[in-house]
């Protein structure tokens, strides 16, 4: 049963990712991306990571992709060949990666060593969300704080860039 779900999600993720770059209409690309985000969230659910699944949809589908759509509509992109000149290169790289994945899978004889962290933490009486928070604020506290700092810097940078433009127009 798990296998069936995994292959369904994996297949749709792969197909919709290809569609994101292959579609001529940027709005259709964005919609393909939306489908992909949902299936990635579904993959998280099959791994018992419900919190990550919800956050995946809230952050990527709910906020970031809406911003993409916003930009696409404002710029009113013409439906021209955006990446289509790069098709041969993309096909070459893609096929190499696909062959590599197949070879690795065959050599390792399937991925038997599935990480079962979600179920372990549930066995320990902790929910998925609690386990994540616990790890994030103890083991990975330093990377977490660094990531926050980088995001803060990026935010300030964006504000400064936007403001500079504003002053220039007023002068």
């Amino acid at each position: 049963m798990d296998q069936v779900f995994f292959f369904y999600f994996a297949l749709v993720i792969a197909a919709s990712s290809v569609l994101v770059v292959a579609m001529r209409n940027p709005i259709y690309s964005a919609l393909s991306l939306l489908i992909m985000f949902f299936h990635v969230a579904g993959l998280y659910v099959t791994l018992h990571a419900e919190f990550l699944a919800a956050v995946q949809i809230i952050v990527y589908a709910g906020a970031i992709l809406v911003l993409y759509l916003f930009v696409v509509m404002l710029l009113n992109l013409r439906q021209d060949d955006r990446y289509h000149r790069q098709w041969p290169v993309a096909a070459a790289i893609g096929s190499v990666l696909a062959i590599e994945a197949i070879v690795l899978t065959l050599l390792k004889g399937g991925t038997a060593a599935v990480v079962r962290t979600g179920q372990e933490s549930e066995a320990a009486g902790l929910g998925n969300t609690e386990a994540l928070g616990d790890v994030l604020y103890s083991t990975y506290l330093f990377p977490f704080e660094v990531a926050s700092l980088i995001l803060l810097v990026a935010m300030i940078g964006a504000i400064i860039l936007a403001k500079k433009d504003l002053e220039g127009r007023q002068a």
Binding site: I27, E50, A54, I58, V66, T129
Partner: peptide, 25 residues
């Protein structure tokens, strides 16, 4: 009764915006 109930609601209400945006477009 899923253990991320409120996040589930937030996730899907944020999807509702797509209907409005795409309908407008």
């Amino acid at each position: 009764d899923i253990n991320i109930g409120i996040l589930y609601i937030l996730a899907f209400t944020s999807i509702g915006a797509y209907g409005i945006i795409l309908g407008g477009w």
